[in-house]
Amino acid sequence: MSPDVEAVAGARRWLAGRARWRWWEIAFWLAAAASFVLLPSRHLILAEIAILGLFALSLDLLLGYVGIVSLGHAAFFGVGAYAAGLMAKHVGGEPLLGFAVAVFAAATVGLATSFLVLRGADLTRLMVTLGVAMLLGEAANQWSSLTGGADGLQGMTVAPLLGLFEFDLFGRTAYGYALVVLFLCFLIARRIVNSPYGLSLRAIRDNPLRAAALGIAVDRRIVGVYTLAAAMAGAAGALLAQTTAFVSLDVFDFNRSADVLLVLVIGGAGYLYGGLIGAVFFKIAADLLSAQTPQYWHFWIGLILVVLVLAGRDRLGERLSALARRARLTGGAP
């Protein structure tokens, strides 16, 4: 049977259209680059946003693409932060080396714990991931000869990036570094979610039983993407450690895991930009709110969460994606 040439071409066009860069994506990254040049006085908070955005992006790979809920994603953030911190303290040298080691360490821990989330419903996964983060936090607390325990890891010396860019007080190097890492990680994530592998992840998210019946090796895919997400979370942790030259136990905090979940949910899961947009919103809101009511700003974050859920997080997302579909249909017409 000779396949319908036109239909094949149509299918190819349609699939290529899904992976194409859209104008707003380019605008988003141009704006990010512009912020580096135009907002030098805001580099410190922008660096924090980029780091949080990367952390949320890593969670999006789990929650948004393969449907794994985690209440302990800070576990990998923390491992990355401590690995980078220890490298800076004991080995010194190039931050990129410390970064690579941190990513590797977080990926290793991710791989090792990924087997714990293969089985079980959401609730089991929530508690297992939470337990892993608590366990690692406890380990960092107890092993104080290495980590400094509750006092935090002190005495980090972070060498200039590439031997050229000193980490300055104004966060210029920090933001540049964080933004470049974020962009590279984003490119990797984007490439992967648009691949056959990424498509199979979405299939697993929607219906793991059916995915397996198509011949997809569900467990292997979950292990793979969990490890990748852990590596990216570790990258975010390493960035935090290197740009602030300090690591404390709060990198493993439940609050951090909860915050990143919130950031992702605010921005919307499952399209990669949610974590980034959520991070911008979250940090700015936190900045404004804590200027008004320092110490109590989590109250407002909590309120946002409650309202968001009651108003229907999913429905909100559906409405947005319906809008996006319509925009695509009208914009994509030849």
Binding site: A258, L262, F299, I301, G302, L303, L305, V306, L308, V309
Partner: peptide, 9 residues
């Protein structure tokens, strides 16, 4: 998410 929100509040 909802109950974490309540906890924070």
């Amino acid at each position: 998410l909802f109950s974490i929100g309540l906890v924070f509040m």
